[in-house]
Simulated assay, not measured.
Amino acid sequence: MATLTLTRLWINLLADGSAISAYSSDRSRSYTVPTDVRTYAGGRQRAVTAEGAKRQFEFTLTPVIAATVTQLEAWAGQTVQVRDHRGQRFYGVYATVGVGELRDGTYTASISLQGVTVEQE
């Protein structure tokens, strides 16, 4: 029986399947339900919520080369699939690539992936 050991974070562009992989130093997530508090007559306040939830995942890739940073920047705004070292799969879109420079000439790149719903075939 074959065993697969995942040691890296993989990002695939859904449009054409091209991939980026790198070690990931961390991952955090947040879960938000769209909620608004409205004030009505007599000063009463009521919560108004919308159906659905916003899921956001933060990934940091390190160390990466300049070409990887450029590729991540080119993919901003497009739907990607991310697989972490646990084999978990996330679909989403990111708008920003945070870049930090390391002493050896490589970089850290961080993305904030906003989850989207993807139809599975």
Results as ranks from 00 to 15, higher is better:
residue 69 V to Q: 09
residue 69 V to A: 07
residue 70 T to R: 13
residue 70 T to D: 15
residue 70 T to L: 08
residue 71 Q to G: 04
residue 72 L to F: 06
residue 72 L to T: 00
residue 72 L to S: 00
residue 73 E to H: 08
residue 73 E to L: 11
residue 74 A to D: 06
residue 74 A to C: 06
residue 74 A to R: 14
residue 75 W to R: 02
residue 75 W to S: 01
residue 76 A to K: 15
residue 76 A to P: 04
residue 76 A to V: 01
residue 76 A to F: 05
residue 76 A to G: 11
residue 77 G to E: 01
residue 77 G to V: 04
residue 77 G to H: 02
residue 77 G to S: 02
residue 78 Q to I: 02
residue 78 Q to F: 11
residue 78 Q to P: 06
residue 79 T to A: 14
residue 80 V to L: 11
residue 80 V to M: 08
residue 80 V to H: 04
residue 80 V to A: 06
residue 81 Q to L: 12
residue 81 Q to W: 01
residue 81 Q to F: 05
residue 82 V to L: 08
residue 82 V to E: 02
residue 83 R to K: 11
residue 83 R to H: 00
residue 83 R to D: 04
residue 84 D to C: 07
residue 84 D to V: 05
residue 84 D to F: 14
residue 86 R to P: 00
residue 87 G to R: 03
residue 87 G to D: 05
residue 87 G to H: 02
residue 87 G to W: 01
residue 88 Q to P: 10
residue 88 Q to Y: 13
residue 89 R to A: 12
residue 90 F to W: 13
residue 91 Y to L: 08
residue 91 Y to A: 01
residue 92 G to N: 09
residue 92 G to F: 04
residue 93 V to Q: 03
residue 93 V to Y: 00
residue 93 V to M: 10
residue 93 V to D: 03
residue 94 Y to W: 01
residue 94 Y to H: 01
residue 95 A to T: 10
residue 95 A to E: 13
residue 95 A to W: 10
residue 95 A to Y: 08
residue 96 T to A: 14
residue 96 T to F: 10
residue 96 T to W: 07
residue 96 T to G: 05
residue 97 V to H: 03
residue 98 G to Y: 08
residue 99 V to H: 07
residue 100 G to Y: 05
residue 100 G to N: 09
residue 100 G to P: 00
residue 101 E to P: 00
residue 101 E to C: 03
residue 102 L to R: 15
residue 103 R to M: 10
residue 103 R to Q: 13
residue 103 R to S: 13
residue 103 R to C: 04
residue 104 D to W: 03
residue 105 G to H: 12
residue 105 G to P: 11
residue 105 G to Y: 06
residue 105 G to I: 04
residue 106 T to F: 10
residue 106 T to M: 15
residue 106 T to N: 05
residue 107 Y to H: 14
residue 107 Y to L: 12
residue 108 T to C: 00
residue 108 T to N: 06
residue 109 A to V: 01
residue 109 A to I: 01
residue 109 A to K: 00
residue 110 S to W: 07
residue 110 S to L: 07
residue 111 I to V: 10
residue 111 I to Y: 05
residue 112 S to E: 13
residue 112 S to G: 12
residue 112 S to W: 06
residue 112 S to F: 07
residue 112 S to I: 14
residue 112 S to N: 15
residue 113 L to G: 09
residue 113 L to M: 07
residue 113 L to H: 02
residue 113 L to Y: 06
residue 114 Q to R: 10
residue 114 Q to L: 14
residue 114 Q to W: 05
residue 114 Q to C: 08
residue 115 G to C: 06
residue 115 G to D: 09
residue 115 G to K: 12
residue 116 V to D: 13
residue 116 V to G: 03
residue 116 V to Y: 07
residue 117 T to A: 12
residue 117 T to H: 07
residue 117 T to S: 13
residue 118 V to L: 00
residue 119 E to Y: 10
residue 119 E to M: 09
residue 119 E to S: 12
residue 119 E to P: 11
residue 120 Q to M: 15
residue 120 Q to A: 11
residue 120 Q to S: 11
